[in-house]
């Protein structure tokens, strides 16, 4: 397993966007369903974090039999992020009857 540069770049960019989100919190929180959207995004960023952890510490993790655990964490983050994003979509775009 080797480190993929594009994954590092994506993670750094995601981190930058997260800082932007937090930095503009006073205005951004007026975004519809802001909390769910932020949670979804943060978990997605965590997924990219685990991807990079897996690449950087592969040898050590592999030695301790934890390489796959990191991979599972990454994909778990993607699943949770997607589910929260679906919930966000429902809360923002769902009709009243959908949410009752």
């Amino acid at each position: 397993m080797e480190i993929q540069q594009n994954e590092i770049v994506v993670f750094i960019l995601m981190l930058g966007v997260l800082i932007f989100y937090v930095g503009t919190y006073a205005q951004s929180r007026r975004f519809p369903g802001w909390k769910l959207f932020l949670i979804s995004f943060s978990i997605l960023t965590a997924g990219f974090f685990f991807t990079n952890i897996e690449g950087v510490f592969y040898q050590i993790l592999h030695l301790h039999g934890l390489a796959e655990a990191s991979n599972i964490l990454e994909h778990s983050c993607y699943v949770v992020s997607a589910i929260v994003l679906a919930l966000w979509s429902r809360s923002v775009f769902g009709r009243r009857s959908d949410r009752s």
Binding site: V79, A82, A86, F93, D98
Partner: peptide, 13 residues
Amino acid sequence: VSLAALLVAAWYL
């Protein structure tokens, strides 16, 4: 499962 959740999101969109 992620794909399914994203399809739900797309449906609402």
